[in-house]
């Protein structure tokens, strides 16, 4: 399955990109990342226009990137400025991708740069706010992008996959409310007067019954934001403990993706021990997801006779998300084939 090109994907955390050439596959495109001397992040298609050698295997000479195969040299716009040791100056260029750096994130828009629309990104100012603290990272995943999207849009799996950390019976037992706004899909799961699962009990010292909110936002094609609130039951907003988890779900190739995460909290923000504990727990939860999604990928990939999947009410947000992605893909496919774009009303 191809990937949506006209949309933002999380390409890297700001501190992952520097003066070293780095390759990442984004939505089926090989991309070479680096920064110019003035700090501007650059993303070029990682194929030399000469003989397709990956530019990320080359070297930086000041702001000029030199291909390590035959010496083609490129500036930060991807334009060839000459060939090392030779007189020729070919008319050649490699594609430069549109990037946007904000709140410690480098976003990439693989499609038409003129269509890049910043308003499609969720608010991430909390990543830079002094009232919040966060941990972050990225895990490679050998599973198709859609499986990760559906994993996050149906958190009833926490009950079964993550019982020692964030899951308990209350999650699967509480129905979600799903709403849609344009291409975005939202769900709310409001658990009232339930047991706190182990992770939250340890993080917040909550012992009695709690109110636990999970408000999810899918910003297609590649961003998921989970707003979490925990409080002793009956406590009014804005009291209580708040957490946010941002996931950059970035497809790499057909059956691989990158799972970026940032886990933030608005309480005990100077407690380094708590930060370490929460990061360990987050990685443990994500490890369980990675294991599950990778075997799930294998099961999807090897099914010889496709049978119809069964679905239930808690799948609704995930199914809506899947439809949104299918529609975006269909619209891009129609455009590419020169046909009319299906009306999206």
């Amino acid at each position: 399955m191809p990937h949506v090109q006209n949309g933002w994907y999380l390409a890297a955390w700001s501190d992952e990109v520097g003066r070293t050439l780095t390759q990442r596959w984004i939505a089926g495109n090989p991309v070479c990342f680096y920064r110019l001397g003035d700090g501007t992040p650059i993303a070029l298609e990682d194929r030399c226009p000469h003989r397709k050698f990956p530019l990320s295997l080359g070297r930086l000479d000041g702001d000029v990137l030199e291909c390590n195969y035959h010496g083609y040299r490129f500036d930060g716009t991807g334009t060839c400025v000459g060939v090392a040791e030779q007189q020729d100056k070919p008319r050649a260029a490699t594609r430069r991708f549109r990037l946007l750096e904000r709140d410690g994130i480098i976003w990439i828009w693989p499609g038409d740069p003129d269509r890049a629309d910043e308003s499609q990104l969720p608010d991430t100012s909390w990543l830079a706010s002094p009232n919040w603290t966060h941990v972050k990272g990225v895990l490679p995943l050998k599973a198709r992008h859609l499986l990760l999207v559906e994993n996050l849009l149906d958190l009833s799996h926490e009950t079964f996959l993550h019982p020692s950390t964030i899951g308990n019976a209350a999650v699967a037992a509480t129905p979600i409310e799903v709403t849609t706004s344009g291409p975005r899909v939202f769900f709310q799961r409001r658990m009232v007067g339930v047991q706190a699962p182990p992770f939250y009990e340890k993080s917040m010292g909550l012992t009695g019954l709690v109110d636990r909110w999970q408000d999810g936002e899918f910003h297609p094609p590649g961003v998921f934001l989970l707003n979490i609130r925990l409080a002793a039951t009956g406590t009014e907003e804005p009291e209580g403990f708040h957490m946010k988890v941002l996931y950059g779900m970035t497809p790499s190739t057909e059956n691989e993706c990158l799972d970026f995460y940032a886990l933030a909290r608005d309480y005990a923000i100077d407690d380094a021990e708590l930060t370490t504990f929460q990061h360990e727990q987050q990685l443990s939860v994500m490890g369980e997801d990675v294991d599950a999604l990778e075997v799930q990928e294998l099961m999807y990939a090897t099914e010889r006779r496709r049978t119809v999947e069964s679905s239930i009410r808690s799948d609704l947000a995930a199914l809506r998300g899947r439809r949104v992605l299918q529609k975006m893909l269909a619209a891009e496919a129609a455009e590419e084939s020169g046909g009319a774009v299906p009306a999206t009303r």
């Binding site: 999947e309 069964s310 679905s311 239930i312 009410r313 799948d315 609704l316 199914l319 439809r323």
Partner: peptide, 8 residues
Amino acid sequence: SCTEGICG
């Protein structure tokens, strides 16, 4: 599949 208007 679901016959309840959920799965599509």
